[in-house]
């Protein structure tokens, strides 16, 4: 297991390096560079005419005249060594300040959604497979179609209405008014959790519907395996039997797609965020693209891809633990 983990760890680091290079290239693709923009922002409307020499001076000043590879190592070095993502020129401050809290809020929503999805879909999927063909099973199938067919933003609107009607809460944003700009404290975290469930439920909805069907299908297969009958024939109590034998293998497809789920949730997040009034990274990414603020866009892309690569690493390790055949290479 140790050797397997180390191998995957090395694989993850290599992937992250390649991904960072790709993100940097994406940042380079739009025409013009930071020097052009800086000059435009600083001098437009002031009546001062800017010459090519002035722009070049800014370029040299900022070190943008250096070869691309050097600038890449400068950029990634700053991130890895100092956690510094560079300047966000549209905001005239550092990228770290712009992204700041949003990283934590976004990852909070992501994890809450993931955990909620798995907590609901795995037990229900197992139950549906065990009671295959029962009324409950058919009911869940109908719910699944509903879950897959219903658009997120519509669900968000409906949930917002009911959350407000029933709980009277000022749903919208992740904090209630007194905590919005307050420094982090325990009551603020509690306040966030009280707001977090709504976006988590909205984002988890379709994933739950989909994963229930996944678990149900694999669990149904596993239940018919001879090894399960053999275990039953040696007197293993039914509950323990289900968890120990078929369920352990039935959650494989879920575990192996954790990375995809992170990506999917992140892509769905901006629309839901608009409806629920959240401030998160997805929206910021969209705006950064429109402003051609490539340092911000690059930072967000890098964080997202690192998160996906890391979750894939986690799912590899989990899979190897669930099914020893994987690490034994059989």
């Amino acid at each position: 297991m140790l050797r397997f983990t180390v191998e995957r760890l090395i694989g993850m680091v290599v992937t992250m390096a390649l991904v960072s290079l790709m993100v940097f290239i994406i940042m380079e693709i739009p025409p013009g560079d930071y020097a052009d923009r800086y000059a435009f922002r600083k001098y437009s409307g002031t009546g001062i005419s800017v010459t090519a020499a002035d722009v070049q001076a800014i370029r040299v000043d900022l070190g943008l005249d250096r070869p691309m590879l050097i600038r890449y190592f400068d950029w990634i070095g700053g991130i890895v060594l100092r956690g510094d993502f560079g300047q966000a020129f549209a905001f005239e401050t550092s990228v770290n300040k712009v992204i700041g809290d949003k990283v934590w809020l976004t990852s909070g929503i992501l994890f809450a959604t993931l955990i909620l999805t798995y907590l609901i879909s795995i037990p229900i999927g197992i139950y549906a497979a065990v009671r295959r063909g029962s009324a409950v099973d058919y009911g869940l199938t109908v719910f699944s179609y509903l879950g897959l067919a219903l658009p997120n933003f519509l669900l968000a609107l409906v949930m917002l209405y009911f959350a407000n009607r029933w709980f009277g809460s000022d749903i919208g944003g992740l904090f209630s008014a007194p905590y919005r700009d307050a420094p982090w404290s325990l009551p603020r975290v509690w306040d966030m959790l009280k707001h977090l469930w709504l976006p988590a439920v909205v984002l988890a909805w379709s994933a739950v519907a989909y994963q229930i069907q996944t678990v149900r299908a694999t669990m149904s297969d596993e239940l018919n395996k001879l090894s399960v009958t053999a275990a039953r024939a040696r007197g293993v109590p039914e509950g323990r039997l289900l968890l120990k034998y078929p369920a352990r293998l039935a959650i494989n497809p879920i575990v192996s797609t954790i990375g995809f789920d992170v990506n999917r949730i992140f892509s769905e997040l901006p629309i839901v965020a608009v409806v629920l009034g959240l401030t998160e990274l997805g929206q910021l990414l969209l705006r950064a693209y429109l402003d051609l603020d490539m340092n911000v866009a690059g930072a967000i892309l890098l964080i997202l891809t690192f998160a996906i690569v890391f979750m894939n690493f986690l799912s590899d390790i989990l899979l190897a633990w669930l099914d020893p055949r994987i690490k034994l290479g059989a």
Partner: peptide, 8 residues
């Protein structure tokens, strides 16, 4: 082969 669970 099938009588044994492959993961234990």
């Amino acid at each position: 082969m099938a009588s044994f669970s492959p993961v234990y």
